[in-house]
Simulated scan of single mutants.
Amino acid sequence: MATQIITLIGVLVGALTSFLATAAAERAKFRREMTTRWDERKLDTYIEYVSCIKEIQRAAMEAGRAREQDKDASGALAEMESSENRRSILFEAFVLLSDERAATAAHAVNQRTWDLLRAARDQSSGVPALRAIPLVETLNVLHEAARSDLAIARG
C-alpha cells in the first residue's frame, strides 16, 4: 500500500511539474507573440508619422519656392494642411504605442512642425525662412529614440 501511495505521489508531482513547465512555456510564447505584434504596429506607426512630417516639410518648401517665384502657393499649402491633419491623428497612435523617450521626441517634432506650418502660412516666408526651422535635427532625435524603443541596433 505504501508503494502505491509513493507511486501516486510521484505521478502527481510529475504531472504538476509537466503542467507548470508547459504553462510557463506557453506564457513566454504568448508574450513574445504580443511583443512582436506590437513592435510591428509600432514600426508601421513610426514610419507613417515620420513620412507625414516629411510630406508637410516638402509641401511647405514648395509653397516657399512658389512665393519666391511669384507663383500661386495655394496647392502646396492645401497639401500641407491635409498632411497636418493626418499628422495630428497619427500622433495619437504614436504616443499610445511609444515609450516615453520616443513620445518626448515626437512632441519636439510637433513643435518644430508647428513652427514650420506658421512660417509657411505667412505670405512673406520664402525658402530661407523655412529652412531656418530645425525640423531635421528634431527628426534625427526622434529616429534615434524610435530605434531604441524598437531595439534596433545600429552598426
Rank of each mutant, 00 (worst) to 15 (best):
R112V: 02
T104P: 09
T113P: 09
Q69A: 11
A78M: 12
E92R: 14
G75I: 13
L97C: 14
I89F: 10
I89A: 13
D72M: 10
R67M: 01
W114Q: 13
S83G: 11
N85K: 11
S98W: 06
E81H: 11
S83H: 07
E92G: 08
D99A: 07
A108I: 08
R86K: 09
R86S: 10
Q111C: 05
L97A: 06
A73T: 09
R86F: 04
A108G: 00
T104N: 09
L77D: 00
N110K: 13
M80R: 08
R86P: 00
R118P: 04
Q69W: 11
A93R: 15
R112L: 09
S82G: 12
Q111W: 05
L116W: 06
Q111N: 03
R87P: 04
L96Q: 14
S74R: 03
D70Q: 10
A108L: 08
V109N: 04
L116H: 03
E84V: 08
S83L: 06
D99V: 01
A120F: 07
Q111S: 04
V95D: 06
R87L: 08
A66K: 09
K71P: 08
R87K: 10
A78R: 12
S98V: 02
E92F: 12
A73Y: 02
D99H: 02
A102K: 11
E84H: 09
S98A: 10
A76D: 08
E81V: 06
S88Y: 05
A106F: 02
M80L: 12
Q69K: 15
M80P: 06
L96I: 15
E68L: 10
R67P: 00
K71A: 15
R86N: 05
I89K: 11
R101L: 07
F94G: 01
L77W: 00
L97W: 01
F94C: 00
A119K: 01
E79P: 09
F91D: 00
L116K: 03
L97H: 05
K71I: 05
R67I: 01
E84Q: 05
S82K: 15
R101A: 14
A93L: 12
A66Y: 14
E68N: 13
L77E: 00
A78V: 09
A93M: 12
N110G: 13
A78H: 07
S74F: 11
L90H: 01
A103L: 08
E81N: 08
L96E: 15
A108P: 06
A78F: 07
I89T: 07
A73V: 06
L97R: 08
S74H: 11
D70I: 01
E84M: 13
A105T: 06
A106S: 03
D70G: 02
L96H: 15
G75N: 14
A93H: 14
E68F: 11
L90W: 03
M80C: 11
